[in-house]
Amino acid sequence: MTVGVAELGNNRAPLPDISPKSVPLVERVSVVFFVVGPIVAVLTSVPFFWGWGLGWTDIAIFALLYPLTALGITVGYHRLFTHKSFKAKRWLRVTLAILGGQAWQGSVIFWVADHRRHHKYADQEGDPHSPWAFGPGVWGLTKGLFHAHMGWLFRKHRTSRRKYAPDLLADKDLVLMQRNDVYVLIAATTLLIPMGLGALLTWSWHGAVTAFFWAGLLRVFAGDHVTFSINSICHVFGKEHFQTRDRSRNVWWLAISSFGESWHNLHHADPTSARHGVLKGQIDISARVIWLFEKFGWVWDVRWPDEERLAAKRIY
């Protein structure tokens, strides 16, 4: 059973009354177990491996590289290529596309097509990853969370790139990076770079292998899991500060690790805004990075939030 009705033109059927406050405790627990469980499992494994399979070198390389691939997704794939929140110099566009590719979330054109489709049909039939696709209730929400988190990635049919990303198909740089051989090379560097840094910093194979695992594989796992959590948990519960036509919510405890992407309610209320955390105390690292790029003259025509538009959609 799916929730919602297929979009007809720009009209949508109203969503059923499944507000965050009405979600039973057992369903909230299932959300936390499903989404937070894997992260907790990884963190609790750290003390067991410390000094043998994990050291300060691995932590340092992880801390150096995680922000780069995260910004490749948040600033590059999402705010630049999907929503055109700003314009950027060619070298920066290419750099962000490469960093996003290193996150192992697919080539930029496929990613953008899926995300634009998500916004068109958010939490309605046609949305590629709505957690409400199987209805409410423990079983429906469990299936929906798996689907929204990662199950949708295994679907048989791809979102049409020609329909949802024709502008990117006209970009020769992005088309080149979409080629299988080029993308495989980009994806491989996300493991080879930390492995090389581990070898150089420790001058040992042991350092290379541990960096490959912790600062390579585990870094990709952590980054992807955070991104997937925006699709799943940020459409199930959290706070709603702005009016939208979907179930997008703000989740504060994901703000740092997602570099501001978890201020998801504002994003759906104003998708082209370069800043998602617009209220007091809402940290948005990606927006600050775009601000710095603008100061350096690397980006321009930045679509910063408009106070009047925000006020019109604000829920008090």
Rank of each mutant, 00 (worst) to 15 (best):
V138N: 13
H119K: 09
F86H: 03
V26M: 09
P38Y: 05
I98F: 14
S45W: 13
S45I: 09
H147M: 01
W52K: 13
W50S: 14
V42D: 04
G100P: 11
I109Y: 08
G101I: 05
V108K: 15
F49C: 14
W132V: 04
H147S: 01
Y77G: 12
L64D: 04
P47L: 03
Y121S: 00
T44A: 12
K89F: 00
G144L: 00
L145K: 02
H149V: 02
P38N: 07
T142G: 13
I39R: 04
R116T: 10
W56C: 01
T95Q: 02
A97G: 15
F146W: 09
R162P: 11
A63I: 10
W111Y: 14
A60K: 01
Y77E: 13
V32S: 08
M150H: 10
M150P: 07
H115T: 11
R90S: 03
R117L: 03
R93E: 15
W56S: 08
H147W: 14
R28L: 00
V32G: 00
A41E: 00
V108R: 15
S30D: 09
P67K: 05
A63Q: 03
A113Y: 13
L80N: 11
R158A: 10
D127N: 06
G144A: 06
L54F: 15
G100N: 12
R161T: 15
T69D: 12
L54K: 07
S85V: 05
K89Q: 05
I98A: 12
L65W: 10
L54W: 13
G151L: 04
L43P: 02
V40D: 03
S85A: 15
F48C: 14
V36N: 01
R158Q: 07
Y77W: 08
W152Q: 02
P67C: 04
H78C: 06
M150E: 01
W104M: 11
G100R: 11
G151M: 05
I39D: 04
L54N: 10
G140K: 12
S45L: 15
A148H: 07
T44W: 09
L141T: 06
F62W: 15
W91E: 00
G53Q: 14
R162F: 13
F110K: 13
G51C: 12
V42K: 06
I98Y: 10
F49E: 14
H119L: 03
H149W: 03
P136I: 10
H83V: 11
F86N: 06
T159H: 01
L68P: 13
W56N: 07
Q105M: 14
L92C: 03
A63T: 07
H115C: 06
F86V: 08
